[in-house]
Structure formats: structure tokens, C-alpha cells
Amino acid sequence: MRIASYNVENLFDRAKAMNLDSWEEGRPVLEAFAALNALLGEITYTPAMKTKMVELMIKLGLEKSDTGPFVILRRNRGGLLKRPTAGGIEILADGRADWVGSLELRDEPVNEHSMRNTARVMIDVEADILAVVEAESRPVLAAFNDTILPAIGGTAFRQVMVIDGNDERGIDVGLVTKPDHVIGLMRSHVDDLAPNGERIFSRDCPEFHVTLPSGKTLIVMVNHFKSKGFGSPATSNAKRRSQAERVKAIYEGLVAAGNELVVVLGDLNDTPGSAPLKPLIDGTNLRDVFTHPGFDNGGFPGTFGLCNAGNKIDYILLSPKLFEKVEVGGVFRTGMWPGSRPRRWDCYAELTKPHDAGSDHAAVWVDIDV
């Protein structure tokens, strides 16, 4: 069987702030959005909080309207704010109970060439079990599977599953499988809590119990750890370490219960030697498929961007029983922008500029005889 992992970076729609020419352009918007959302969720609004809310609303383009270039403030009931004719914003509410509504990121359609190149990767990797990272939702992934894949000559996957996660931007993790690899039991960890009471996972760490043609059960744990994109490095590192520690605990619990076929895969947003991933990489008997003699990295050590060593952030980690059954594996970069001076790898003919890329991530795959 072939197992693969692919960060699709959304399929049909993506937050406008995440669809700019570079991550650095969108980062201030996402940071302001996160900060304002946190303040709006407070039980009581202090004068200092109200001052900061106004500052962030202006930064997000909400001074004159509830619709900014990148966000929408939805006010269903209650009085959150008023906009005096003289200009500015005045926060009227004294806490979250005083108004009903939400702050949301605005979406825009993904580039059509990008969409089709994402589908080409999903087809050409030829996985029996494919972990999908950054899908908007199950209905979206199902629609993409049922319409876009066949439209460009591919065959739709038989099962499509996404469990809604914690990310307000609508980027979740899921699994798609071929007909003879059947998803059965599913267990979400979306509400697992850290000692400080915060939810551990940025998205989720779902367990998918897949029945193989042999009758054996494979447990697939799909992950998308906290990015380095916004927030302080110390906070982001601590979050990823907490996630790594929790995945380690879940994995060891599964092994203790007698499960020998377990794979942890996805976008872990850090390198193998990093301190945040140490509990998972060095603290368990999971083996990174990149270290197998039969694995071909295609001449580059990374999986993201230009695929340098510092961009090795996508993983397939295998339990010992799976690792010993590995035949071959590799990195599929044909849907990625190859750079221009010089081009680092061959890509699809339809990929003529960075925005046409199916993703900034490569797909990682492995063939296992189980």
C-alpha cells in the first residue's frame, strides 16, 4: 500500500490574508486578527482593552465599515461599537455578553491553475491512503474529490473524512482513501487541554482506524502543528512542543493497547532536530521515513519552499512494525514552484508562476508491504 501526506493549502477558497504574494505580507493581518479576536472574547472589557480593540480595528480597515479588506466584523445583536460622525471608533460593550457576532477572515477563490495542480498531485502520487492538510472542510474536500479529480482525468477517492478543528481560518486535517482501505473508528483530540487550560492542537490530531485489504488495522494520526508564522518564537515553540508531547502520549497509549501499525504524519512546521519536536522524534520509537535506505529525497532535504534543510517540515513517522516493511518512498515536488535561477526540479507545464503552484509543500509518500 502507498501512504502519503500533502499540505494542499486550501482547495477552493483561502483567506485573502493568506493568499498574498508572500507570507510576510499577510502576517501582520493574521496577527492583528488573532489579537482582536482574543480581546473580543474576553468576559469583561477594560478601558485598556477597548483602546487596544480600536487600534486593531483601525489596523484591519474597520474604521468606517464592518467590512475591511481582509476581515468582516459580524454584529448580529447588541451594541459592540459606534462610529461617531467625527471619525474613529468607540467601543460601547463592556464584555462579550453585551453583543452577539464574530470576527471573520474574508476568503477569495484559489487560482484555477493552482487548484488543478493540487488535483494533479493528489492523482499522480497514487496513494491508497492520503493525509490532507489545510482542507477547508469535509464538504469542500468531498466536492473537490468528486468534481475536480475526475475533471482532469483522475479517479475520486472512495472515502473522504475531515473532523472540524480549532483553526478559525478554516484549515483542517483529513484523510482520503481508496475503496479497499476502509476508514472505520475515528477519534478526535480537538478538545485535549494543556495544564493551563488551553486546547493543545491548533487544528486537531484525529485518529483514523483504517482496515487494510489484509484485514489488519492501520491507525493514522494526521497533524498540522503550530506554525512559525505569527506570534513570538518562544510562544510558537512552546505550542509545538506541547503538541509533540501530546502526540507522543497518544501514540504510546495506542502501542500499549496492542496496536503495532501506527503512522503519525502531516505538517509539523519544524525541523527534525528542533527542540519542539524532540519529544516525538527522539522520545519515541517512531521512525522518520526520510531515514530509510529505500527513501529518495530527490536531491533536496526539505519539503517546503525551495526545499532546503531548514524547510524539512512534512513528515511520515512510522511505528517499528511499519518501518521494517518499507519498500521505497520519496518526495513528489512536481506541483511546487521550482524557483527560476536555476529551476530546481521539473514541474507541471501549467505551473508557469509561483501562484500556479498546487502548494508550497511537496507531497511525501511511502510504499509499505503490509
Rank of each mutant, 00 (worst) to 15 (best):
T46F: 11
R2H: 04
E350R: 02
R199Y: 11
R203Y: 04
L175D: 05
G153E: 04
G330A: 05
R169N: 09
L277C: 08
P47Q: 04
D191G: 05
K312Q: 14
S137H: 13
D180T: 14
L62R: 07
K82F: 13
Q159T: 12
W99T: 09
E42S: 12
A32L: 00
A362H: 03
T271E: 09
D360G: 10
R246I: 08
L11T: 09
A309C: 02
E63S: 10
P233V: 06
D367R: 10
E126C: 07
A48K: 14
R14Y: 00
G197L: 02
V366F: 00
M336C: 10
V182Y: 01
A363T: 06
S359K: 02
K82M: 10
Q243N: 04
K325Y: 00
L60C: 04
G253M: 05
V162P: 05
T177R: 02
G95R: 07
Q159N: 10
N111R: 01
E31D: 12
E168L: 11
T284H: 07
T118A: 13
Q243W: 08
L185K: 14
Y348T: 06
R138L: 03
E324P: 06
R116M: 13
H181L: 08
L80N: 07
I43C: 02
E134T: 12
A256D: 13
E260N: 13
G283T: 07
D367Y: 08
V182F: 03
R106W: 03
G253E: 11
P69I: 00
V162L: 06
A143C: 05
I250T: 12
I129R: 03
N237P: 00
G215Q: 05
S5W: 01
L80G: 07
R116D: 08
I183V: 14
S5D: 06
P139N: 09
V176Q: 01
E104I: 10
E55M: 07
N117L: 04
C347Q: 03
W365P: 12
V264Q: 03
L317T: 05
M57L: 11
G153L: 04
L20I: 04
G26W: 01
D167C: 00
D107F: 14
P139M: 05
R343A: 15
H292C: 06
D98L: 01
P84S: 07
R77C: 01
D21V: 11
M221N: 12
R333K: 12
M122S: 04
G79N: 15
E126N: 14
D346P: 00
V289D: 05
R241K: 15
G78M: 10
G79M: 08
M122N: 04
K312R: 15
N10L: 02
K82L: 11
G339K: 00
L56D: 02
D94R: 14
V264C: 12
T217P: 02
R14P: 00
I91D: 09
V71I: 10
R96T: 13
V125C: 04
K52S: 06
